[in-house]
Each structure stands twice: as structure tokens, then as C-alpha cells.
Design a protein around this nucleic acid. Structure first.
Lengths: 226, 226
DNA sequence: CGATTGCGGAGTGATTCGCTCCGCATCGAA
DNA sequence: TTCGATGCGGAGCGAATCACTCCGCAATCG
């Protein structure tokens, strides 16, 4: 009775990959209000198939988050493997921006964080801290720049309001130009972290709690926006 | 019969200001899906009062957009009035980021653009172009940086994913830290536009159509995300 | 004190949401 | 070729939320 269990496993795997990719894209455009139907449609499958693979919307987002965390850790390790400290840091930043942790920010706090996710995040944070420290030792990084500064800048750069809007409006003819424009902006912004004639950053360095605390469930009263 | 027309005009004006401020805040947090009820609640008024002042949600957003455009133009002119080209440009950028054109991006294309809005935008664009040109003449601006580069960077920096998320979760205790962190990031990113050891930006300069075209109604088929 | 005015928010129909369930197409085995 | 098994797409469901209307009420004037 189980002889021909996975007669279509290829198709199943392809559907799964398409679903994850579609989910990330739709999440990037629609934010927290991304609907299951939109994700399924973009993946070219029915909602039924989506729910056969993932029991709930939350579960899909959890898996998505796990994958992003893995990419995040890989990017940091790749950066550490590079000889030039500055080049390594930029490699990590670029890869991290592309993988798009910012797209996942809107769903933060809407699902439970598994132990695996916590561990991946901690390992990634350690790697990035080492990346920053190494760049400082080499004198390549602007004075006073911390790992949190870097991660927040990455988060800020990983969403693209322009591209999202173009996609919503269906103006694909402008998409290439937008991609190019974005690359220029990212380059400029990251260059602002270089050790250079520019002085230290204003204020004091932000603490890690900006990163860690918000992933816990809201725990108390709801926001002021209601 | 019209003697005591506006016996409470003070309160009406205060309500109107509160509504506009609330609308901008809610829009920044909730994006395109900001609800009328949420705006009214945050302003501390009933939805009835909102609809007495603005006949429709669209009308409120139009007014909001007009105000933002005025602030945009003012900021550019203030920058031009400053003697130091670089300081003037940064003044404009900071003010523009604070006024938050990025918050209005999600509603772009959802309402008709009035002639007044078009004219304000054009005057602002001209002022910014002059601001950029002047900075280039003074040798303060990085080679190859265009007005569009600047405006896109401003748009990128004017949304704050971190602050939005904190507000959604009601974690006001982290808000000050987030504000400080954001200022550091903005400073760093804008410093990336300085004339410095860093080379020219990659790719070719983006054209103005990235800015202008998307404000027109979608005109044809809907996006791929459905 | 009665008339007037603007207020807050319950109510309304339409829409959209996450999710279930079922008819159907597609496969291997007989 | 036929039949049972399997996974597919999407119609449909109840709940939630949306923009917007309408009405009872409190505050203010002559």
C-alpha cells in the first residue's frame, strides 16, 4: 500500500520551492497583510496544495523565517571566510540585503520562535559581531559603528518601497531601472560606514535589545494605533 | 442666520490638525491598509467627525499628500537659502526624511493627482536639482550622484521598519533607543553621498521616470501578485 | 429655555480573510 | 483498457474587517 507513495515527488518538491519563493515575494510587496490566496496564485498552485504542505499560514511563515536565518548565517560565514575584512563585511551586507530579512519584519511576533531559529540567530549574530570587530581592527570601519548599526542599516535597505510600488502597479517596464537605482543607493549607504574623513556617528550606539526583544510575543497591552 | 456660524471653530481646527497628524502616523505604521477607524481613534475623535471634515478617505489622503508636498518644497528652499552647499543639501534631506514622503508611497496611484500637487512637485524637483547641482559645483557631492539618487535614498530612509514594528507591538520603552539608532543610520547613509575616497556609484544614473511615472493611475493590467 | 450645531460611535452592506472540502485529472497496477 | 489511488485546483464557508451612514446626545447660543 505504500509502494507508490511518492509517484509525483518531483512535482511536490517543485511546488514547495515555488511556494516559498512566492511567499517571500508576496510578503515583500503586501507586508503583513499578504493573503494565502495571493501566495498560492503567485506560485501557480491552488490554495489546497498550499494547505496540504503547510497546515497553517503561520507554519509557512515559520519555515520562511528559518530559511532566511540560514541564508543570514551563511552570508556572515562567507564574509568571514574572505581575506579582506571590508570586502567580507560588504559581502555579508549585500547578501543579507538580498535575502531580505526586512521582508520578514512585518510578521515578527505573529508566530512562535522555535529553538532552532533562536540558535541560528545567535550563531549569526556572533559571526556578524566578529565580522565587525575584524573590520574595526583593520581600520576599515568607521569609528563607533557597531554590529547593531550594521544590522539596522541592512534592515532599512532590504525593503524597496519603489520596487514594491512598481510591482503593485504592474509597471514591469521600469523594474530594471529600479533595480539599478537601488544598487546605487545601497552602495552609497554602505560606503557611509567606511572609515573616512567623516566623523563618528551621532548619539550613542544602540543596544542589542532593539534586535532581540521584539521577536518575543507582545506580552502586554496592544499598540496605540487602535 | 449666519451670525454664529463657527461658534466652535477653535475645536474644529484642533480636530482637523489632530486628524492630519493621526492619519500620517497610522499611514506610516499600517501602510496602504490603514483604516479610517484607526485614524479617527488615534486622533481622539469619532469617525463621524472625520467624515464631516473629509467627504471620503481619498480626500483625506489627498490633503495629506498636499501638505507633505508643501513641506518638501519648503525644505528644499530652506536648503537653498543656506550658504554651505553640503549643509543645505543635508538640511533638505533630513527635513524631507522627517516629513516622510515614504509614508505616502503606499497610497500613490490610489487617488487623482490635482494640478496644484503637480505644480508643487515640479517646483520642488527644480529646487532639489539646483541643490544637487550647487553641491556638485562646490565639489561636496560624490561624483555621479543625481537628484534622483538623492530622492530615492531619502525615500528609502524615510520609512522606519523598526519603529513601525515597535509601535505595532506597543513597546514604547524601546522607542527612544530606536530613534537614536535611526539617526545614526541616516547620518551614515547620507555620508555615503559625500565626495570622498570612495569611487563613483555603480551602474548608470536612474532617470526621472522612476519618480514621475508611478503617480499616474495604473492605466493597464493589474500586477502579478493576484 | 428652546433651537441649533457638531459630536461620538453603533449599525450596514460589501468585501476579504484563513481555511475546508470535493469533483476531477493523472498516474501505476492489473 | 480499466480501476483504485493520489494529489490537484478552486468553489464555498463563517468570521472578521472595511468604508461609510445615521442618529441620539451634549454643549452652546439668543
Amino acid at each position: 500500500m505504500t509502494a507508490s507513495r511518492s509517484w509525483r515527488s518531483k512535482e511536490v518538491a517543485r511546488n514547495d520551492r515555488a511556494l516559498l519563493r512566492a511567499a517571500r515575494e508576496v510578503l515583500a510587496v503586501d507586508g503583513a497583510h499578504a493573503s494565502v490566496a495571493a501566495i498560492a496564485a503567485r506560485a501557480g498552485v491552488g490554495v489546497g496544495s498550499l494547505y496540504r504542505r503547510y497546515r497553517t499560514k503561520q507554519e509557512l511563515f515559520q519555515r520562511l523565517c528559518l530559511i532566511a536565518l540560514r541564508e543570514y548565517l551563511d552570508a556572515a560565514n562567507e564574509g568571514l571566510a574572505m581575506d579582506d575584512p571590508w570586502a567580507g563585511l560588504i559581502h555579508y551586507a549585500m547578501a543579507s540585503i538580498r535575502s531580505g530579512p526586512g521582508s520578514l519584519a512585518p510578521v515578527a511576533g505573529t508566530f512562535d520562535v522555535t529553538d532552532e531559529m533562536t540558535e541560528l540567530a545567535e550563531r549569526g549574530d556572533r559571526a556578524v559581531a566578529e565580522l565587525v570587530e575584524r573590520a574595526h581592527r583593520a581600520g576599515a570601519l568607521r569609528a563607533g559603528v557597531t554590529a547593531v548599526d550594521l544590522e539596522l542599516l541592512i534592515e532599512q535597505l532590504s525593503k524597496s518601497p519603489l520596487q514594491e510600488q512598481l510591482q503593485r502597479q504592474g509597471r514591469i517596464e521600469l523594474y530594471d531601472a529600479a533595480l539599478n537605482a537601488r544598487e546605487r543607493i545601497i552602495t552609497a549607504a554602505l560606503d557611509g560606514l567606511r572609515a573616512a574623513p567623516a566623523g563618528p556617528l551621532p548619539g550613542q550606539a544602540p543596544g542589542y535589545e532593539l534586535f532581540t526583544r521584539r521577536w518575543a510575543p507582545p506580552e502586554d497591552g496592544q499598540p496605540a494605533s487602535e
